[in-house]
């Protein structure tokens, strides 16, 4: 597998670490913001545990730890392993054209 790091170019996948689905978003809540603890826990349960686990193109996090240490957001087909796009995490360096909006 080859992954096109938007900073470094195409590299072999041994340089990267995979985290998983990039779609779930960490819930935002205000401490003592009056939300019921159950609801907040429900939201975190979804975020931490539940996955669409798509057979097809999914958005996912990869870490170029064996390279420039950037977190990347890739769209990849889980059936064919084909990458549709690879963009940089919003906080990886300065804003780039190819940076993922989160």
């Amino acid at each position: 597998m080859r992954i096109a790091c938007p900073f470094c170019g195409e590299r072999e996948n041994g340089e990267f670490t995979y985290l998983g689905d990039a779609s779930p978003k960490r819930p935002n809540f205000a401490v003592d913001g009056g939300e019921s603890p159950e609801r907040v826990e429900d939201a975190f349960h979804d975020y931490v545990y539940l996955r669409d686990n798509l057979a097809g193109v999914m958005r996912e996090y990869w870490y170029h730890g064996g390279g420039c240490r950037s977190w990347l957001v890739a769209e990849r087909n889980t059936v064919t392993h084909e990458f549709v796009s690879v963009t940089a995490a919003p906080g990886a360096g300065a804003a780039l054209a190819a940076q993922a909006g989160e």
Binding site: T17, Y61, Y63, W71, A89, P90, G91, E102
Partner: peptide, 15 residues
């Protein structure tokens, strides 16, 4: 280190 970079680049990019 990987976790901290995740927090920095993905969760809290504004910091």
């Amino acid at each position: 280190m990987q976790h901290l970079e995740f927090c920095r680049q993905i969760l809290f990019p504004d910091l």
